[in-house]
Amino acid sequence: MAESDDVDLVTLARLGVRADRLAARRAGLPTELPALWVTLGSPQVGVALAAAVAGEKAAVLVVAELMATGDAARGIELAQGIRGARIRAAALVRAASVFARRRPRAGR
């Protein structure tokens, strides 16, 4: 760092502590919580929680719930945004499975 830069070590320390506390809170969230928000009629909250806090396993559950509630476009969009290839594939397979169960078959 240049000599003219003022480093506020107290503020940096406080930010570090706050970040650790937020990470600890996030770790304690149930994986099913984002999907529950979708079930309760707040898909935007469920998607945001899955994407920002709860992780990819929760995103798979949210994808399935979005598909089950008829929001296929949002479910597929969320599934395609999952970074891990294996988990993304699992989410897409689950989405297809839920979607197939919801759609009436021709001739029935």
Rank of each mutant, 00 (worst) to 15 (best):
M1G: 15
A2E: 05
E3M: 10
S4P: 02
D6H: 14
V7D: 07
V7C: 09
T11N: 13
T11P: 10
L12S: 03
R14Y: 04
G16H: 03
G16F: 07
V17P: 03
R18V: 02
L22R: 13
A23F: 07
A24N: 10
R25I: 11
R26G: 12
A27M: 07
A27I: 08
A27T: 13
A27L: 08
G28A: 15
P30T: 09
T31V: 13
E32D: 15
L33C: 12
A35I: 15
A35S: 15
L36Y: 12
L36F: 09
W37F: 10
W37T: 04
W37H: 13
T39K: 06
T39R: 11
G41D: 03
G41V: 00
S42T: 08
Q44W: 00
Q44H: 05
Q44S: 08
V45N: 01
A48K: 04
A50Y: 00
A51F: 06
A51P: 08
A54Q: 09
A54W: 02
G55W: 05
E56M: 01
A58I: 01
A59C: 04
L61T: 05
V63S: 13
A64K: 12
A64R: 12
E65K: 13
M67Q: 06
M67S: 08
D71G: 01
A72S: 15
A73Q: 15
A73V: 13
I76H: 04
I76Y: 06
E77A: 02
E77R: 09
L78N: 07
L78T: 08
L78H: 01
Q80H: 09
G81M: 06
G81H: 05
R83S: 03
R83G: 07
R83F: 04
G84A: 15
A85V: 11
A89I: 00
A90G: 02
R94I: 01
A95W: 00
A95I: 02
V98N: 10
F99C: 09
R103E: 10
P104K: 13
P104I: 11
